[in-house]
Design a protein around this nucleic acid. Structure first.
Lengths: 230, 230
DNA sequence: ACAAAAGTGTTAGGCCTACACCCATGA
DNA sequence: TCATGGGTGTAGGCCTAACACTTTTGT
C-alpha cells in the first residue's frame, strides 16, 4: 500500500485530462477508445486520458496521455469542457478536463495494433466507462459548432484531398447532406483551398482536382472574422 | 497554523470556480469585480469565486460563491473554460473552472453597497488578480459566440424591454453597430419576441412598443436548430 | 458504349443592406 | 413647431438552394 504523502489543509479533488480523438477513415468519422485494464470499469471502453501532473497544464496532460496510450505525438488537443459531477468516479472525487483532437487515422496505425485501442464508428460505440457517454455527446456538439468557426476538419484529411472527401467529412460531422455542386462553389469561394497540380487517380472514373488547405489565406480571412454558414 | 489533514497518494491541485458576471446598466455592458482583501494580490480586483467543495459540482461552487460575495441567488452560471497554467496562483497549484453569468444589474444593488464589489465598464477595467485578464478576454470571446446560438441576452434585460434596448445590448456585446430598421425586422422575423400590451413611456419621445422574450417559441425553434447570424 | 464520378452553369427566391419617409411626443 | 426617438417600406445585391448538362475514364 502506497503511503498518503501529499497533504493539504483543505480537501482537493483529483484532476484528470481526457481526450476524445476523432479520426476519418475515408467514409466515416471514428472515435478512438481504449479498453480499461483496471478497476473501475475494468474491460469497459474509455477515452485516452489520465491524471494531470502538477507541473503541466491540462493540455500538456492530455497530450502526454495521448502519446502514452496511442503513440501519437504533438497532437493539437483542444479543451472543450470540464466534467465535475460529484459521483462520476467511484474511487474518489475526480474532475475531468475534457479535450478533443482531430487526427489523420493513418498516423495512428500503431494504436490499431495495440489490443486495447480501437477505432469505433459513431453507430457502434460500446458502453463507456464513467460519464464518457456524456463527454462524447458534448464533444460531438462542440465539434459541430467549432467547424463553423475554425477550419479544423483539415486535420482529419490527408494534406491533399478531393473536394468530395472534404464534403463527406462535413456531412459526417454535421449529419447533413449537401448538394455536391453548391458545396464546391461555397468552398471555392471561401478561398482557403488551393488547387494542387498533381492529379492522382484513385478507384473512381474521372480524375478529380486535388486541393490543399491554404493556411496563409485562412490567416488573412481570420482577421476579418472567418465564418462558415451551414 | 492549520494542520494538513487531507492526504492523497498523488499530488492534487486545488480547484477553484470563478464567475465572470455580466450586467447591463441601460447603456453599457458591465463586469462585477471584487476587491481582494487577502494575500495574494491583496487590493487587486478579481472575479467572484473560490475553492470548490468536494460535495458540489463546479457550477454549484460558482453559484455558491456568487451568493456569498454578491447576494445573488440561483443565477444561471455557465462554464466556459478551465484555466490550468502551472504558475497562475503563487500559493499552490490552482486550476480555475471559469463560468459566466448574465444578470439584471438592478437585482445586484445589494452588491453595489458592499464596499468591495463594483461594476466596471469594459473600458475601465483595472489591473486584475491572477490571470483574470486572460479569463475576461476568453469570457468576452465566448459570450460573443454564444449569443448567436442561445438567446441569453434577455437575462441582461428586464422582462419587458424596448427593441432599441435589445439592439443596444447586442451592439455592446458584439462591438458592432446595426441599422435600427434592419435589426427590428431581423428580430421580429426570428419569432422569439412577443409584443406586450402595456406601453410604458420613458424619457423618449414617441412611445415605443414593448416586447417580452417568448421562451415557448424559442423552445420550438431550438428543435430545428436556432441560429442568429450577425 | 455505358455507368459512375466529377466539373460547370443557370435560375429563382430569400435574406441582408442601405436607404427615406412618416408618426408621436415632450420641450 | 421642432427635434428626437420610434415604426414601416422598398430597391438592389448577394448568397443559397434546386436543378441539368457535359466531361472523363474504367469496364
Amino acid at each position: 500500500m502506497k503511503e498518503l504523502k501529499y497533504c493539504y489543509r483543505y480537501p482537493h479533488p483529483a484532476v484528470a485530462a481526457d481526450c476524445v480523438l476523432f479520426g476519418y477513415d475515408g467514409n466515416n468519422i471514428k472515435i478512438l477508445l481504449i479498453q480499461r485494464a483496471n478497476y473501475p470499469y475494468k474491460t469497459s471502453w474509455a477515452f485516452p486520458g489520465g491524471f494531470m501532473n502538477l507541473n503541466e497544464t491540462a493540455e500538456d496532460a492530455a497530450r502526454r496521455e495521448l502519446e502514452e496510450e496511442t503513440g501519437l505525438k504533438n497532437v493539437a488537443v483542444r479543451q472543450f469542457y470540464t466534467f465535475t459531477e460529484v459521483e462520476r468516479d467511484p474511487r474518489e472525487r475526480v474532475i475531468s478536463i475534457a479535450h478533443y483532437a482531430l487526427v489523420r487515422i493513418s498516423e495512428v496505425k500503431a494504436a490499431d495494433d495495440a489490443k486495447d485501442a480501437r477505432w469505433f464508428s459513431l453507430n457502434e460505440i460500446p458502453n463507456l466507462a464513467f460519464d464518457h457517454d456524456i463527454i462524447l455527446n458534448k464533444a460531438l456538439t462542440t465539434l459541430k459548432e467549432r467547424i463553423c468557426f475554425e477550419p479544423i476538419v483539415f486535420e482529419l484529411l490527408p494534406d491533399i484531398f478531393k473536394m468530395s472527401e472534404l464534403q463527406n467529412v462535413y456531412e459526417n460531422i454535421l449529419g447533413i447532406k449537401f448538394d455536391r455542386r453548391n458545396f464546391y462553389k461555397k468552398m471555392n469561394k471561401l478561398g482557403i483551398l488551393t488547387e494542387v497540380e498533381g492529379r492522382a487517380k484513385d478507384s473512381s472514373r474521372r480524375i478529380p482536382i486535388l486541393y490543399r488547405f491554404n493556411a496563409e489565406k485562412y490567416a488573412e480571412l481570420k482577421q476579418k472574422g472567418f465564418r462558415l454558414e451551414f
